[in-house]
Structure formats: C-alpha cells, structure tokens
C-alpha cells in the first residue's frame, strides 16, 4: 500500500470516528501537526505518527460519540419499539394466522409476511425519534430470536430459523433506511 493511500484511508477512518461537532477541528489539528512533522523531520516518521494517532484516538473518540448520542433515550425508544413489535406479532398470530392456517400457525410464513410492513414502520419511527434506536432494536430482536431458538420446545425447521433471524432485523433496517433517505432528501 502506498503512503498516500494509507494516509487517505486513515483520514477516512478518523473522520468517521470523530464526533460531527468536532470533526473539522480534529481533522485540521491532525493535518497541521502532520504537516509540521513532515516539514521538520522525515516523511515516513510523519506518516507513522499520523497512523499511530488515528489508532490511538479510536477508543476515546468512540467514547465521545457514544456519550453524546444520548444512549439512555435511544435505549428507551428501542425498548418501546420492541414492545410494539411484540404486540403486533401477538395480534397477527392470534387473530389472523390462527384463523387461516390449518396447523395452528406454528411455523407459518404468513405470520412473517403480515408482520413485515408494520415492523418496517416501527423501524422508521424509531429512527425518527433516535437515529441509533434501529440498531439497538435489531440487536434486541436478534438476541431474543437466539434465546427462543435455543430454548424452544418445538423443533423449528431450518428455513424458519434462518427467516426468523433475517426478517425482523431486515424490516427494522429497511424502515430506518427509509427514514434516513427521507431526512437527507428534505
């Protein structure tokens, strides 16, 4: 990898890690110090210093981002959204799928198909309130699906297990993507 390419990639990683409110000042400080070192010492030492700074800054900057994101509020929105998903699944399984499926609807794709659009909407609104709530909600869904598949009394078909893992989080991310697109468009 060339020196320029390494610097370019490090700058990209650094600007992704930096909190938006401080990004410009941080990148400017890094550029100023790098330029000072490159002018007064060797270019390779300056590049080494730059890469080392980016690596050493990763954890502190991530911590700033997390603390500025208001994670308590994000977790609160994610929990409310998770409850809403549970209520919808319960209603769909009890009132709609059970009346159409002859086998009682245990592993019915109809349940997933009907639940998908409301979960997209939930992902949409969760993102509208807190930008990171969809990620937390998807993580909660994956965790609960893992727990359910491990401790389920009935043996689930493989297709159902795979679909169960993919459908919920995908719906949430789809809703979140719609919201992000709309927010950037307006």
């Amino acid at each position: 990898m060339t020196r320029q390419r390494a610097l370019h990639m490090a700058t990209w990683a650094f600007s992704w890690l930096a909190p938006p409110s401080q990004r410009e000042a941080l990148l400017g400080d890094l550029a100023e110090e790098y330029s000072h070192r490159a002018n007064t010492g060797s270019a390779s030492a300056a590049v080494r210093w730059y890469l080392q700074q980016v690596c050493a800054s990763a954890l502190p900057l991530l911590w700033v981002r997390v603390s500025q994101a208001g994670w308590l509020a994000t977790a609160g929105v994610a929990v409310l959204a998770y409850i809403a998903v549970g209520v919808i699944e319960f209603i769909v399984d009890r009132d709609i799928v059970a009346s159409y499926a002859s086998d009682g609807g245990s592993f019915n794709p109809l349940s997933m198909a009907i639940t998908f659009p409301p979960v997209v909407l939930i992902g949409y609104f969760a993102t509208r309130f807190r930008p990171n709530a969809a990620i937390v909600l998807a993580a909660m869904m994956l965790l609960s699906v893992t727990v359910m598949t491990v401790w389920a009394n009935e043996i689930m078909p493989l297709w159902y297990r795979v679909a169960y893992f993919l459908v919920g989080p995908s719906a949430v991310f789809l809703g979140s993507a719609f919201r992000s697109l709309r927010a950037h468009g307006s």
Partner: peptide, 12 residues
C-alpha cells in the same frame, strides 16, 4: 498523548 484523547477530555 493522542489528539483523540485530548479532544475527548476537552469535550468532557
């Protein structure tokens, strides 16, 4: 000290 650690502290 890393510039990230300085900014994290300044931000705090």
């Amino acid at each position: 000290i890393s510039i990230g650690a300085v900014y994290a502290t300044l931000s705090r």
